[in-house]
Nucleic acid binder design. Structure first.
Lengths: 351, 351
DNA sequence: TTTATCTACTTAAACGTTTACGTAAAATGC
DNA sequence: GCATTTTACGTAAACGTTTAAGTAGATAAA
């Protein structure tokens, strides 16, 4: 056997190796090879060993497309997020991949660039079974959710993380946006702020609404008057326009406290303050929803609402996998909230 | 036609729609439907219109697995990178996706977590044709490159970006690491530093070697003695260990200038300096290879070597696509270098 | 008119797996 | 010893496309 296996190797040296060639080399049927590789009960241990040895020796790799086509299962999930240059999402991805790797799943990362249109066309692709499930954080201007419903009707399970759509009945993993914003605003008030503005982004996503409500509740509870003039809506991407918008607003409205709802606003606000010579925290105190590691070395160190990104990613994919392994999870009943943590630093005047 | 098309729709309402159902609804053969959708020349315009209309109406989406299996082409490329929470890589991904989106290609993002073993197993998967091409930035401890050669032998084109392997004959898109490090070091010298250390990462990747050589050349040219005692090697991930390592080193060796070769070292160095009460730039001046947007709002604003991440990504995928569209690019002849830009800020004592 | 060419389709095989089903041979039960 | 079950394999169809090859019918050329 070892003697002629060498010549056999030579024979198949240049050709593609698939199950057919494996079967020929081993003098078995393709079915037996397939079953041996999948550790089927009705193949003898001896044959399994032979097949595995040959597969290794010849660097056999199963053709994922053939396998997925036949099995109607791709062992692939989609991660659909607005943007990748955001610490929250990159940490969430790391959380997700810490699980998918172990489970022999692949993850496809799709970026919507926070555009509703891209989101629609990406999700439409999934209806043909390209992925077994979808983890999604929706674009901020997603209001019509028929593309998501359509995907559900096609039988693809969906789990929201962070940015969900409340009208879609499926699992969601979020952080406690309302309370986090409430706590951060209360902290600003306790630090002496009398005129606190919310800088947030345009869109229809519930988490931003929740953060806005938490902020407003803290104000009204502390008998600080609030109308919509102290809430300003930026573009949801780091841009010169945002910096200018913020600069003009600060110059005019002169708030003494700011709550920022997304990561990229922190840099914009800091730059705007430099431009119009506002000192943080003396002139204005700032807190931000962000996971960026540079927060403690900013000038000044930034008070953050630190979201449990890694755990949220893990939990989201965990629920999806439980559903996929037919443990009959009712996705629409799974609504998990993992609290964020207020990390107080000098930008809110703490010593 | 419109009258009975309604009943036809009803008929196929609940079933999966594939070319077979389309063909039945249209009373055509599957082949005709396929060719019509791919705009083949031997289908009449009238039929094409009918087919497209029906496909749209019924939300037909082609099954990517069947198509890829048959065509031996997946319209998918792999992006293999060490880490995602790094501005350089996330910006490069955005550059890549700005092209793949237009060309109707998908991109699969694979994270090696800077581990050689993961890199090997990821690349092995690709030998079965899962992707049409690979863009890779290798793990820092990749020395043996047989996994990459194997992939090449399987006929999968590979383009390196940023971190390449010089022994593999294929295209590479890099920045000018040697000169960038040289320039940054000269800048530190000009700012008065006499005792400059390099903080870099362990590994075998050529770009780190090039940065080290550029640094050393600047020192010798300026007649500053250098041995290996002022080069320290960290783990290539943000960690407490690195901070401790750096803190101890700074405390002991007391350098007055630092060049950092990767993004995450900036935060570590800033934190270490805070811990041992070193003032940047008074006591020690710092420059870093990084693309992070927070650089100008750090305390102090960080002098950076800004890499053309977005353009590098675009260029890398551009070369890959040219090869894939059979323009007979000789990949091994494509070696592009896009210069980085030294952005001087207060961390090196500039006013 | 006959033959050649073109148009617009259809037929059927192929891509590489997986899996329901079939079947000899061996093992077991009585 | 015969019937039954078990073991360990093989056969063949199927997954949804794509595409080479074939073919009626129409049109053009001779």
């Amino acid at each position: 056997m070892p003697k002629n296996s060498f010549t056999m190797d030579d024979e198949i040296n240049s050709e593609k190796i698939n199950m057919k060639t494996l079967a020929r080399v081993l003098n078995l049927s393709i079915a037996t090879v397939s079953k041996a590789l999948r550790d089927s009960y009705d193949i003898s241990e001896k044959t399994k060993v032979r097949v595995r040895e040959a597969a290794n020796r010849l660097n056999y790799v199963t053709n994922a497309y053939a396998s997925s086509l036949r099995k109607h299962r791709s062992n692939t999930i989609a991660i659909v997020i607005p943007e990748i240059a955001d610490s929250f999402f990159s940490q969430a991805i790391n959380g997700i991949e810490s699980i998918t790797g172990k489970e022999n799943y692949h993850s496809l990362i799709y970026l919507t660039h926070d555009s509703y249109e891209r989101e629609v066309s990406i999700l439409n692709e999934f209806t043909s079974g390209r992925v077994d499930g979808v983890l999604i954080s929706v674009a901020s201007n997603t209001r019509d959710t028929t593309h998501i419903s359509k995907l559900q009707q096609a039988g693809i399970p969906i789990v929201f993380f962070d940015r969900d759509c409340e009208q879609i009945p499926t699992a969601s993993i979020k952080t406690d946006d309302f309370n986090s914003a409430y706590d951060a605003t209360c902290h600003l008030i306790k630090q002496g702020c009398k005129n606190i503005s919310l800088i947030t982004v345009q869109g229809y996503v519930s988490i931003f609404a929740a953060r806005e409500e938490g902020y407003k509740k803290a104000l009204t509870e502390n008998e600080i008057h609030t109308d919509n003039s102290n809430v300003i809506y930026c573009l949801n991407k780091y841009s010169e326009e945002n910096i200018a918008l913020i600069r003009n607003y600060l110059d005019k409205a002169k708030p003494d406290g700011l709550l920022l709802t997304v990561e990229h606003l922190a840099t914009s606000v800091y730059l705007a303050c430099i431009e119009i010579k506002l000192h943080i925290p003396k002139d204005i105190k700032v807190a931000c929803f962000t996971n960026q590691v540079t927060a403690p070395v900013l000038n000044p160190p930034l008070t953050t609402i630190l979201q449990p990104a890694y755990q949220m990613g893990q939990k989201a994919v965990g629920i999806l996998f439980e559903y996929l392994s037919h443990k009959y999870t009712r996705l629409e009943d799974e609504h998990i909230i993992i609290p964020s943590k207020l990390v107080i630093r000098e930008s809110t005047g703490a010593l």
